[in-house]
Design a protein around this nucleic acid. Structure first.
Lengths: 198, 198
DNA sequence: CTATTATGCGGAGCGTTGTTCCGTTTGTCA
DNA sequence: TGACAAACGGAACAACGCTCCGCATAATAG
């Protein structure tokens, strides 16, 4: 009996029942508010939406970055796992890189303000930065290296730098409807490609 | 006599002497604070540095964008004027475009936070946005069109979109020393270039 | 079922920043 | 010099991030 309870605790996180409930409520509320007002939405709004106090939100998610990471963890994970699959199924590493980058760009542009938050210095966004890059840069490096070895890419660019560049290109195209992050990122990748003959 | 005074007023802006003095003081203080703390520095800091009250700064520069524009107007102007000159002196329009873009990138990356401010939505940054783009987009378009007509560029990209993309790439490379905005912008331009043969 | 404990909760409150507003000062001109 | 408009200074308000502590309540033992 004691053993079963202990196991149940481990599975759910070893926290009090109301704490677990609130954590989930907060995640749902945050996801909803992020869609409505972007990831920069006031913390108070999220707390209000979830029907909890300020203290609660900060106890569960010490920084806003922790909350953002928790909300989007699934999608980031999916994106990371898609990398090797694309590499295996595409006709060339460069094509796989292009498809994977499209996935990443689609993810970023559909999350209002996320791209901007990912680049912002200082504050408490270090966590977000760390998680996103730790998870995705190796995948990007895998594809990049494969393309380089296949002779499709001539320039030696660190994957982290490429990721940051892509992230930057995904910032704020709300003003000009002609701004298409996908297109510009495509151009960036095209520039990376080995120049054939002359 | 009356005529001469009227002319003097027109030249200097038709304002009271202390107002003119304060405007200059504010510009100097802002320039100093911008290099120290970036263009996002608190308005209070600038006021304090200039030794004036909050009211004064807001009367002269209703929004932060007005102040930023005033501080960097000279450099933006110089950049704009360099466009046609480069076009005339370079061996090819595409080369001129590359050199001009380098000028613009150098300007942006040396102004801490300016690139980020230029893209930020809402707030009172509309002025900044308007001025920078109104002044520089036509120049960029001139070079872009010339390169297109020369057959050096195959993709049809609005100059405003290219400018925004370049601006985005200039954001925050402070974290990773390997991040080089110039290099990435170079890749973007390379991607724009017509692919020779195959 | 009740008592005890410690875990979690709520929201008032502080610090920072942007922005406004108005009583006071000061340049200007007759 | 005196009167008036122009300009000034900074208190004050609003929005936000974040902390802190008294209170509620789930978990546990008897």
């Amino acid at each position: 009996m004691a053993a079963r309870e202990a196991q149940a605790r481990q599975e759910t996180g070893r926290k009090r029942a109301d704490a677990r409930r609130n954590e989930q409520t907060l995640l749902d509320a945050a996801a909803a508010v992020f869609v409505e007002s972007g990831v920069d939405a006031p913390v108070r709004d999220i707390a209000a939406r979830a029907g909890v106090g300020m203290g609660t939100i900060y106890r569960h998610f010490p920084t806003r970055a922790d909350l953002v990471v928790a909300v989007y963890r699934h999608q980031v994970e999916a994106c990371a796992e898609a990398g090797p699959v694309l590499l295996a199924n595409s006709e060339s590493p460069y094509a796989a890189l292009g498809q994977w980058v499209d996935l990443f760009v689609d993810f970023l542009v559909t999350k209002h303000g996320l791209a901007a938050a990912m680049q912002s210095d200082g504050d408490g966004f270090d966590t977000l930065h760390a998680y996103f890059l730790d998870r995705l840069v190796p995948v990007c490096a895998l594809l990049l290296d494969a393309a380089t070895e296949a002779g499709e890419i001539s320039i030696d660019l660190p994957a982290a730098v490429l990721m940051r560049g892509i992230g930057n290109l995904c910032i704020g195209g709300d003003r000009d409807p002609r701004y298409d992050a996908r297109q510009l990122v495509g151009l960036l990748l095209a520039g990376l490609r080995r120049t054939r003959s002359l």
